[in-house]
Write a protein that binds this DNA or RNA. Sequence first.
DNA 1: AAGAAGGTCAACCGCAACCCG
DNA 2: TCGGGTTGCGGTTGACCTTCT
Length: 304
Amino acid sequence: MGRQPCCDKVGLKRGPWTIEEDHKLMNFILNNGIHCWRMVPKLAGLLRCGKSCRLRWINYLRPDLKRGGFTEVEENQIIQLHSRLGNRWSKIAAHFPGRTDNEIKNHWNTRIKKRLKLLGLDPVTHQPIGQHKENDTNKVVEDQDDQPKTLETTTSAESSVDDDHHRSKVEKNSLEKAAKPADDDDQVRELVPETKEERWNIDGVEQISTEMNYNDVLNINYETVCQKLDFSTWMEQEMNNNNNNSNNIAYSYSSSLSLEESNNLSSPTLLADTYVDGSIFSWEGFNYHHHLEQDLFFFQNTQY
DNA sequence: AAGAAGGTCAACCGCAACCCG
DNA sequence: TCGGGTTGCGGTTGACCTTCT
């Protein structure tokens, strides 16, 4: 026996909603609230199924909806969240009050995908297009929630003194702005440390060093890991070690730090995103009981 | 000016998770 | 614990709009 339809579709209207239907639905919900979507169309006098009413309310009629296009900051936040959460649009939408998952999904498929491709990044993996996942460190892992997470590595080493580099820096600045504290269903606490930026010039190439202050996290006893993870120093060393022609390389970076609570509160998982010339490095799965050297081991074996 | 091609987005579909008796 | 009903989610579709030729 086949699956039963969600509702009796005989005699029900489909397709675009009319203004009259919108008014009926809105008035009903504002006056009565939502108790059972299945009953809403009957009680509101609509020839629609409950599912359709729910969708119309959530995606269009809800009074708290934010109208208008996405800002660049919002786009960058979406990219950052997508790199961590994948196509879990509802989770991503939870970070944007007034935005719907459908809206974000549509925006991703029509705009952001193209933008990432233009930047040479695969919209699915967030890695440079054409880069194969040969390294074990780039595999998808499962966390305690059985939610896939991708260990990502990208590089901007080739983006030296050219337009791409300039564009990447602009991108990076936007991404920095996009980082914000967030409490969500995944219980991810994102901490944005204060940064001190120093700029200088070598052979006409602007160099940027970002020193981070992790005072933010001292209050929750993660000072150990925060003191260990001096991203900027380590990145500088690694970038220089891995590029013979390092004098021609300009790079900039910033980091945001997240601590994902697990059932075992004594062993939280560290998540960190480091932006290098606009490319996002996601550092996931670190455990602050480990030594920094061990934590960084897999990262050292990734491609540049 | 008109048709083609491409882009956008509201809405639908089917599945899975959740709820509750 | 089970099973039916309901809700939520993500993929997909198709109508409408805009841009291109």
